[in-house]
Design a protein around this nucleic acid. Structure first.
Lengths: 249, 249
DNA sequence: CGGTCCCTTGACAGCCGTCAACTACCGTGG
DNA sequence: CCACGGTAGTTGACGGCTGTCAAGGGACCG
């Protein structure tokens, strides 16, 4: 079971937080809450990021679009995930953040974040960890669209999302909620929607997935991983940083 | 003209460094120097990163390989670029670092880096900036292989490399050194070497590039950018952080 | 001068995109 | 209760972009 606060549960995958740390994180998240409906742009390319956003419930994504309309989804955000640490440093967004489902998220201002990072070293460390993992995921996505076939690519994306859902306690057995449209899968994999459809059919035919009514079931995760050439190392779930024990400071 | 130390010139694109900052950086880089010949793996997937590496001269890259040998180059490193800030946090490499040319680089240990980050806030800020820009570049690459056609994709990669070479003062007019093989371009763009060859021919036929003898010339950069749907914003060269003036602290 | 690496070119195939029509599903309203 | 409209998913036909295979050419080097 996840804690009520998905950011805390997430960072605890990396460091052991003290009660102080947790209280600071609770405050951080409760200051400015937002809700938006599905399929709304939250922060657009070209705008200046003012706040760090943290997904509390629902799914979001970031994407870039070319002038002629082609669109690439670059990341999916699940509960607990952070968007655009850019706020610290970069002047303008080079991509767009957008909700995929009904979404609730917290906003954290630059000042609030600076307060936390200068007083809570373990939290700072954990935010770094999260950033580096996000980079690793982005690299894997580049590999995914660059080298894998359509079938492998789709299998890989489904594996990643399932494993990430599992890590935040949002799976029930072999199944999890799965709100993406086939057109989202197309934009994320660089395939056409028609070919996404065919690829999903093929995965179904091989009994690798059951996907309908916004629910994904993976009867045999190992088999799907094999079909995807999925190597989980890039998610860095090893809980390494648990060495950073709150009681050890 | 660049400073003798490419790391300093790079970070100065973002912050104004004090003489103290510069001395610290000089020391950092001079401690452990290395030279390797072209096409050597420096740090392999699965190994534990012990030090941060900084390219001083030559080109390097990072790549991931699938079990069956397919290979994706994920980034190119030019003089002044940093490899694997991972050293701080992640337990094992999820990709491989490799030299492309004769390469000289400096190694920075965890201790040295921590000393610098706790005593030189402007340097810390500049390292963050560099990390966020690297993420932005990785996103653009995902877009590149996911959405652009072969011609656009190749044009985009050549644009990026030329602009980055220009930013570090390594261009002479319209030309710059260009040590990549067509097979490197293939691995970076997700195309076959044969198709890379054809795509280069096409770019030559349109007078967009001259590429031979390890030298790239771009007669009309604007035209190449247009063919590539190249939007420079993702490189975040705006020198925004110059607000972080060394004399303002 | 032979060897090796890299680049180039042609022929052919296949994966995947495009176009278009059709079905399924769902919420709304008469 | 059924009609209706809109969105999402499905399927077929066809074409083209890009991969594969294979052979040849050029540059550099021992």
């Amino acid at each position: 079971m996840a804690t009520a606060n998905p950011l805390i549960s997430k960072l605890e995958r990396f460091v052991r937080l003290s009660t102080d740390d947790k209280r600071a994180l609770e405050e951080l998240v409760q200051r400015k809450l937002h809700r938006v409906t599905a399929r709304m742009d939250i922060l657009r390319e070209g705008e200046r990021p003012e706040t760090l956003k943290i997904v509390l419930s629902g799914w979001a994504c970031r994407y870039k679009a070319l002038e002629d309309g082609r669109r690439q989804i670059l990341s999916f955000f699940l509960p607990g995930d952070l968007c655009d640490l850019n706020v610290f440093i970069l002047r303008e967004m080079d991509h767009t953040l957008s909700s995929l489902t009904m979404l609730s998220y917290a906003e954290i201002t630059r000042d609030m974040l600076e307060h936390v990072t200068s007083n809570y070293p373990r939290i700072t460390q954990a935010l770094w960890w999260d950033t580096l993992v996000a980079m690793a995921v982005q690299r894997e996505w580049t590999l995914n669209v660059g080298q894998r076939t359509a079938l492998e690519r789709m299998a890989h994306l489904l594996c990643e999302l399932f494993v990430r859902m599992e890590a935040i306690g949002h799976t029930q057995g072999n199944s999890c909620e799965f709100p993406l449209l086939q057109s989202d899968l197309a934009d994320a994999t660089g395939l056409s929607t028609v070919h996404v459809n065919r690829t999903l059919q093929e995965l179904r035919a091989q009994n690798l997935i059951v996907l309908r009514a916004k629910e994904l079931t993976i009867p045999d995760l190992e088999a799907l991983k094999e079909a995807a050439l999925f190597n989980i190392n890039y998610l860095h779930l090893e809980h390494e940083g648990r060495a950073l024990d709150a009681n050890a400071t």
